[in-house]
């Protein structure tokens, strides 16, 4: 579903991604772990065009991202993104946040968009907060709204950029629970995270990134119990 080949990304002289190769299959849940500065977030953001590729290629669901002819917005409708800092629209109520893109981008009817939004908000446990504004929500509630907002566009893939890093520890659980449900329903997910427990439980595959490359990858058992690479071992010993 996602084919990444020799992905290179440079910011001026700084070479952040150094020739990444990766294949993510449908319905797969892939967790990306690694030290800060390893390029995990950059890798994720390349997948929906928030960062431009310097060289190499990414193909998502038959759309080539490096092809200037392909409309990046079509790709973005297929890949939903959840940000570390939620990025909810503060001037819109919760339900308006969720309905905005379906109305303006997918051009669905108001009734349809509303029905879908209500369903999604119920799914993430926030049907009671439909008319609240982001300013009145807790971090965990905001992130769940953000997930519902991304899901409203019927994406085939969900990209999560450190979704719980900005949350208080006791709230992290409610967001991870939603993500777990999503995984169990068969959504293809790429999650950049520091939550090793989540990765161990839910991921089909774990990628360990360091200095712009995937150093080691495998099932959670392989990576967490028996890491082969010295750098992986070093990182895990510090965080586990």
């Amino acid at each position: 579903m996602i084919f990444v080949e020799n992905l290179n990304k440079k910011y001026g002289p700084i070479h952040v991604l150094k020739g990444l190769d990766c294949h993510i299959r449908e319905r797969e849940v892939v967790c990306v772990i690694g030290p800060s500065g390893s390029g995990k977030s950059t890798f994720l953001r390349c997948m929906n065009g928030l960062e431009t590729i310097t060289s190499g290629s990414i193909v998502i669901n038959k759309h080539r991202l490096d092809d200037s002819k392909s409309d990046i917005n079509l790709v973005r409708q297929e890949a939903g993104m959840v940000f570390q800092h939620f990025n909810l629209f503060p001037h819109l109520s919760v339900i308006d946040n969720v309905m905005l893109a379906p109305l303006k981008v997918a051009k669905t009817s108001k009734a349809e968009a509303r029905a879908k939004a209500e369903t999604l908000l119920a799914k993430v446990g926030l049907e009671k907060k439909m008319n609240a504004f982001p300013g009145n929500l807790s971090g965990g509630q905001m992130q769940r709204v953000a997930i519902a907002r991304a899901l409203a566009m019927n994406p085939k893939i969900m990209l999560f950029d450190e979704p719980t890093s900005a949350l208080d520890p006791e709230i992290v659980g409610e967001v991870l629970a939603v993500m777990k449900d999503l995984a169990n329903e068969g959504m293809t997910m790429v999650v950049v995270t520091h939550e090793m427990g989540f990765a161990r439980e839910v991921a089909d595959r774990v990628l360990f990134m360091d200095e712009g490359l995937i150093v080691e990858e495998g099932t959670p058992e392989q990576i967490f119990s028996a890491p082969q690479n010295a750098r992986t071992q070093g990182f895990l010993s510090k965080v586990l």
Binding site: L50, G80, H85, N87, F89, R149
Partner: peptide
């Protein structure tokens, strides 16, 4: 206006 809001809009496919 925080950059993140713009990015969220982009990620949702808005022009």
């Amino acid at each position: 206006v925080p950059k993140g809001l713009r990015e969220a809009g982009k990620a949702l496919g808005m022009k």
